[in-house]
């Protein structure tokens, strides 16, 4: 059984004149000690999906209309009533994209790292501060003893993200959700942060759910991948399935739209034309229909179901239907 398993999640936001269907069927899972990457473009619903799991969706306007999120078999979507408060921040923790705006500018970094320990673990202030210093040392912040008394503005971007990680792992969570943790950082600092996350994962046997739009980061970090498009998970599989045996046309499109660096190879980027659909008025059929080079008649009006491509590899695309083998062969065995 997976440690965290999200099934058929639907989330919508009330807006003037209707609602935006931000997540329209997201299923993903992550095992102990492993990393799941959720990849997709802005507006595809990846952040809303994990915010729902963390209970961070403001209701109203947001509303989880369907689905479950099970941690060790127990549904945690129901909010405080379902014991969510005890789980969030302790058993599941989250770090955010922009550490500067996610930390409280009026509290010292040490006090912010100590807070979850005082709230959730009943530490005394002094114990919590001592632990905060250890955590900063673990996240490789130089001179941690004096740094715990400094304020966020005195830290660089990379150090702030390390402090966020220190705060998130304070209660030794079994799942760490990282929402674009390195997008705001420079590439050399990104590398340090990703290495740090891997080291901490090995030490604590923690599961990581990593949200990113960068396929390079996915290739580096993930065991499993869920590709999201227009509010749906369109393809799931191991990282090798997704990169070397891509099944969904959107995944193929993403791969050919970004440069890879093979010495001597001449590459021609192929952009995905058009833009994602407006989720205020989602299309009746496949969300990728208007941009898909393989679109068929059926795709326009009938939403595709999820097909098993392989044992642990699924794709939400009509091309995998048994009556469609011709096209699948053409595309996937060139």
């Amino acid at each position: 059984m997976a440690l965290l398993e999200v099934s058929d999640l639907h989330v919508e936001f009330a807006v003037q004149g209707g609602s935006v269907q931000a997540v329209r069927g997201a299923s993903f899972s992550v095992n102990e000690g492993e990393t799941l990457a959720i990849v997709g473009e802005s507006g595809c619903g990846k952040t809303v999906s994990v915010q729902s799991v963390m209970g961070l969706i403001q209701t109203p306007p947001g509303r989880i209309t369907r689905g479950t999120a099970k941690l060790r078999g127990q549904d945690i979507l129901g909010g405080v009533a379902a014991g969510g408060r005890e789980i969030r921040g302790t058993d599941i923790a989250m770090i955010f994209q922009d550490p500067m705006s996610s930390l409280n500018p009026t509290m010292t970094v040490g006090a912010q790292i100590a807070e979850p320990l005082i709230v959730h673990r009943g530490y005394s202030h002094r114990q919590a501060m001592r632990r905060a210093q250890e955590l900063l040392e673990m996240t490789l912040i130089p001179d941690a003893a004096s740094r715990i008394n400094e304020y966020p503005f005195e830290f660089s971007g990379g150090m702030l993200q390390r402090s966020m990680i220190a705060m998130a792992i304070a209660c030794e969570p079994s799942v760490l959700i990282a929402d674009e943790p390195t997008t705001a950082l420079d590439v050399t600092i990104q590398s340090q942060i990703l290495d740090l996350m891997v080291d901490l994962q090995r030490t604590n046997n923690m599961a990581i759910v990593l949200i990113t739009h960068d396929l390079g980061v996915v290739a580096r970090m993930a065991n499993d991948v869920a590709v999201m498009y227009a509010g749906e998970v369109v393809e799931r599989g191991t990282v090798d399935d997704i990169f070397y045996r891509s099944a969904h046309p959107y995944t193929l499109g993403l791969k050919s739209a970004m440069p890879t660096n093979r010495q001597g190879a001449v590459q021609k980027l192929t952009p995905i034309e058009g833009a994602p659909p407006d989720l205020f008025d989602p299309p009746p059929g496949c969300g990728y229909y208007t941009r898909c080079p393989y679109a068929m008649e059926v795709c326009e009006a009938t939403p595709p179901i999820v097909f098993d491509v392989d044992r642990a590899h699924q794709s939400r695309c009509w091309l995998h239907h048994k009556d469609c083998l011709q096209q699948v062969t053409q595309i996937y065995r060139p």
Partner: peptide
């Protein structure tokens, strides 16, 4: 350092990084 830090969209090359 800059180029060595640049993640490649290729899992097997990342594993051998």
């Amino acid at each position: 350092l800059l180029i060595g830090s640049n993640p490649e969209p290729d899992p097997s090359r990342e594993r051998s990084r």
